[in-house]
Design a protein around this nucleic acid. Sequence first.
DNA 1: CGACGTGCGAACGATTCCGTACATATGTCG
DNA 2: CGACATATGTACGGAATCGTTCGCACGTCG
Lengths: 231, 231
Amino acid sequence: MRELMRSLPPGNRLIHSLEPDDRDALLAIATPVEFALGGVFHEPDDVIEHLHFIDSGFCSSVAVLEDGRTVETVMIGREGVLGVVASVVPHHAHTRSVAQVAGTARRVDASRFRTLSAQRPGVRDAVGDYMARLQGELEQSTACNALHHAGQRFAKWLLRCHDRVEGDTLNLTQEYLASMLGSQRTTVNEAAQGLQKAGAIAYSRGRITVLDRAALERAACECYRRGGDPL
Amino acid sequence: MRELMRSLPPGNRLIHSLEPDDRDALLAIATPVEFALGGVFHEPDDVIEHLHFIDSGFCSSVAVLEDGRTVETVMIGREGVLGVVASVVPHHAHTRSVAQVAGTARRVDASRFRTLSAQRPGVRDAVGDYMARLQGELEQSTACNALHHAGQRFAKWLLRCHDRVEGDTLNLTQEYLASMLGSQRTTVNEAAQGLQKAGAIAYSRGRITVLDRAALERAACECYRRGGDPL
DNA sequence: CGACGTGCGAACGATTCCGTACATATGTCG
DNA sequence: CGACATATGTACGGAATCGTTCGCACGTCG
C-alpha cells in the first residue's frame, strides 16, 4: 500500500534511515526551519544554497514557462529532500519550489553537505538513492504528461498529495490544481466531478476530502504506482 | 547558436573538458566500445553496471508504459554520459536506452567510476554538472509534454537530434518518431508536412533532411532553447 | 443584513489529437 | 519485371481539451 508513509513515525524518512552516527553528523550541521503555505524555497535560476530535508508538510517543484503557465514536475515530502542535486554539485534551480502544505524542515548548507557527504558514505548513499528515485519520477511524469488523460493525472496527483499529508483533507482550489496539472480549470472541474460522483472525493470551496483511496487508485494511471514508493 | 556542438572537435565533451591528469585517470579505466543503430544499453529495471561517455552517435532514454507505448525522456550524445546517476549511487534503470545513431563510447564500470570520482573532484564535478543539466532537461520535458503541441515538440526533437549528428540527414520513420513523441503517426505526418511546406525539412521513406534550421527553431517551442546548451 | 470576492457548475464553439481505415508510393528481392 | 513489405498521404468520426463566458453558491466583512 502506498499510503504506508502516512503511518510511519513523524520526521524525515531519509534522516530516519541513517545510522546513528551519520544522523548525528548531519543534524549537527542542520538548522530547523518552518515554512508557510505558499512559501517559496527558490525561483528558477536561483543558486541552490541549501538542502531542505522535509519533516512535515510538503512542497512542489514547478516549471514556469515563458507565457507564465506552470506545471508541477515533482512533489517532495518527508520521504525526501529539496535540492538533492546540490548534494553532488553546485548548481542553479530550473524550477520554482513552493510549499503546498506548511510544515518544518532541516536546512543544511549545500556546500557543507557536500563535504559531509564525501566523508560519510552512508549519508551520500541515502541521499543518492533518493536522487535516483526522483529521477525515475521525473521520467515517469514526462511520459505521463505525454500519454495520460487529465482525469488520470488528476487522480494521481491527489493520491501523491494525500500520501504526504496528515488526515484526509487537502486545501486546493480547482484553479490551483489546474496550474499544477498544466490544464484548464474547466478540465479539472470535469475530472473532479467524475471522482465526486464515484464517491472518491468530496470538495467545496477549496477543500478536498479523500473519501475512498481505492477508488482514486482505480482512476489514476499506472504512473502513481510506478512513481516509486515514497516509503 | 545551438548547433555549436556540431562544430566542436570530435569526442566526448565531458572528457574533453577535464584536466589532463583527470582525463588520463578516467581513460585508464575506460573501455572503447561501439554501438549499432537500435542497440540497447539497458532495459527498465536492469542494474546500471556502466557509464557510457558517448564519443559519436547518440542514444535516447525511453519510458515504456504497461500498454507498450513509449516516450523519449532524454537524448544523450557526445555532450554527456549515459547512466549518470550511477556515478553517485548504484541503482537500476527506469527506462530503456537505445542507440538512435550508431557510434562509439567509452564504457566505465560504475563502481570503479564512483571510486575515481571520490578521489578526483574534477571528474566528479564535470559529471555532476552534466547530471544537473540532465535534470533540468527532464523537468522542461515534463512541462513541454503537458503544454506544447505535437508540432512544436516534433520540431524540438528534430533540432535536438540534428545537434548531435554529423551532416543534415536523419534516418527516422514517422512511425518511429511517433513512438518518441508519444503521439500517433498521423499526427507526426501532419507536423512533418507542415515543416516540409515551410521548407524546413525534406523527407522520404525514413530519411529526413534538415534544410533550414532557423525555420525549425521558429517552429519549436521555448523548450528547445531552455533544454540547456549541449555545448 | 447586504455587498463583495472567491470558487464552482455549466455551456459553447474551436482546436488538437486519437484511432482507424484505406489508398498510394517506393525500395527490395526473387 | 513483378511481388511484396515498408513508408507515407489522406480522410473521417469521435474524444479530449482548450478558451471563454455566464451564472450561481457560499463566506466574509463592513
